[in-house]
């Protein structure tokens, strides 16, 4: 463990790369610089951070559903802020900040009615899986992604399970299986004859 104190502000590299981009830079409690910005600016900011600040790895693309915030918690923000927040986290393997390899986090709000952002697969092809998972779990579309389809749930699945309004026991969880089973039984009725012993 390094005894270095966590940094108090974002590194000059981050601030320099984002110069001219309308955003709000703060320091997270974990010592990671956090950039909040509009979703239209996110792709530009990501490419600047990659090319000018040397963040060569995109380690995380995910989303946060702020449904509870809107309804119960931050009542002052209710309706004023969009429901989802897409989060990217980048890693620079060559620079050290606060005793660790430097990271930066970007957050952009997207609305429920138009849940889409620009894909960053043109900057980091490896982000494709993370974006697919984010689409699968939150239903956020990534424009420019070459094959945006579900990653974990079946292709025909109708819901996005990590949304806060999705019940944890699911909505008709056996629906796809039952449809498949019915088709299978209709195709080969003889196979199941006498098979089901109690």
């Amino acid at each position: 463990m390094s005894a270095t104190a966590p940094p108090l502000s974002a590194s000059a590299a981050v601030l320099g790369a984002l110069e001219g981009v309308k955003c709000e830079v703060s320091m997270g409690r974990d010592g990671v610089a956090t950039v909040e910005l509009a979703r239209e600016l996110a792709h530009d900011a990501l490419s600047r951070l990659r090319d000018r600040a040397g963040f060569e790895q995109c380690t995380l693309v995910t989303a946060v559903d702020h449904l509870i915030d809107n309804e119960l918690g931050a009542l002052a923000h209710a309706g004023a802020r969009e429901r989802y927040e897409v989060v990217w986290q980048l890693l620079c393997t060559t620079r050290v900040l606060g005793g660790r390899a430097e990271r930066v986090r970007l957050r952009a709000r997207v609305s429920e009615s138009d849940a889409r952002v620009m894909s960053c697969t043109d900057l980091w092809p490896g982000a494709a899986y993370a974006e697919r998972e984010c689409y699968d779990m939150f239903g956020i579309r990534f424009d420019g992604h070459a094959g945006l389809k579900r990653l974990l749930m079946p292709d025909e699945y109708e819901h996005h399970p990590l949304r806060k309004d999705f019940p944890h026991e699911g909505i008709e969880p056996d629906k796809l299986y039952r449809a498949w089973d019915a088709a299978r039984r209709a195709a080969e009725p003889a196979r199941d004859a006498g098979q089901e012993r109690s």
């Binding site: 749930m153 819901h159 399970p161 999705f166 019940p167 944890h168 026991e169 699911g170 909505i171 969880p173 056996d174």
Partner: peptide, 10 residues
């Protein structure tokens, strides 16, 4: 289903 009272688990 065990502890997985979940949309994904039989």
């Amino acid at each position: 289903g065990g502890m997985y009272d979940s949309y994904a688990v039989v």
